[in-house]
């Protein structure tokens, strides 16, 4: 017969009796408050902008030419589209190809990979005004491009490059190695494996990153004020100055003359950004499903 004692956990409590531990109660209230506050702040901001902006929305706000009568946001909207296309065309191929190099070609854990990764992380932490000043010194002044869409586009593409590289890298890492093995096992080379198996599987993730980057471009002001300037018209060429929606808003509110119109512009901008975010999380959701 065994004589060892057993520790018995008291099981006499009824299942329905709720724990009255004060610490857990306080924690629960704190967590609840934090969640409520966060949601409230978001709704207050959006609500305030909609409240101040929607009554000021008018058709002449969308005239093709800007003047002080209509304070049209249309040129800025078109400039935003041009700026987005410009920066994306420069940054996306560069970012994707360097990410492919880092994940597929470079030796895993090599010095170069580490250096590039640290550099990219540092770049993504730099405030955008620094990019703006760099763009001003290099593209605008040294290369003599002047305040231009081109200078702005290049500055922004440098700014979003780390973001695209990182998201692409993550997307490539998420592709199971078994796909690569399967492809090599059939006698496919590295190039074919990367471009026909790995890259297509990573596309949704890469796309989500690109859309996130578009969100940053659309919302950027500091890096653009000093590079693409603040001219409120549709530029004749890429070497002319032009303001994007965010810069337009900044200009309107710093001049202080058309605050109503600034709010109306904010409504358009916020709808644009929310739309982009929805598309981004929708595509991101698609990857996790597959």
């Amino acid at each position: 017969m065994s004589t060892s004692k057993k520790t018995v956990i008291n099981n006499n409590k009824k299942l329905t009796s709720k724990s009255k531990d004060p610490v857990s109660l306080i924690l629960r209230i704190l967590v609840w408050c934090a969640a409520a506050l966060t949601i409230m702040i978001l709704f207050v901001i959006i609500g305030y902008i909609l409240y101040k902006g929607i009554p000021n929305l008018s058709l002449d706000l969308f005239d093709l030419e800007y003047n002080t009568q209509n304070v049209s946001l249309m040129p800025a909207l078109i400039n935003t589209v041009i700026m987005t296309i410009l920066s994306i065309t420069i940054a996306v191929p560069l970012g994707i190809f360097s990410a492919i190099y880092l994940t597929e070609y470079a030796r895993r854990g090599s010095r170069l990979v580490k250096i590039v990764r640290i550099t990219a992380e540092t770049l993504s932490g730099i405030p955008s005004i620094i990019y703006g000043l760099f763009g001003l010194l290099f593209f605008v002044t040294t290369l003599h491009w002047g305040f231009s869409m081109l200078a702005g586009g290049f500055t922004l593409s440098i700014m979003i490059l780390p973001l695209i590289m990182r998201t692409t890298e993550e997307a490539l890492h998420a592709v199971p190695d078994s796909y690569r093995e399967g492809s090599y096992g059939l006698g496919a080379g590295k190039m074919r494996t990367v471009f026909t198996i790995v890259l297509p599987s990573a596309t949704p993730g890469i796309l989500a990153g690109v859309i996130l980057a578009i969100g940053r471009i659309v919302g950027e002001t500091a890096a653009l004020i000093y590079t693409s300037g603040t001219v409120a018209d549709i530029p004749d060429s890429l070497l002319s100055s032009g303001r994007t929606l965010s810069v337009h808003m900044y200009a309107l509110s710093s001049e202080g003359l058309f605050m109503d119109k600034a709010y109306a512009t904010a409504v358009v901008l916020i709808i644009l950004v929310i739309l982009l975010n929805r598309i981004s999380s929708y595509t991101a959701g698609k990857i996790s499903k597959s």
């Binding site: 796909y179 399967g182 059939l186 006698g187 026909t196 597959s290």
Partner: peptide
């Protein structure tokens, strides 16, 4: 060499594409 010496892996690893394209890949 890998074309002449094919391989089947421990866990089934079809590519995320159609059945036809999987077989036609090689």
């Amino acid at each position: 060499l890998r074309k002449r010496v094919g391989m089947v892996f421990q866990k089934p690893n079809p590519f995320p594409m159609s059945i036809y394209d999987n077989v036609a890949y090689g």
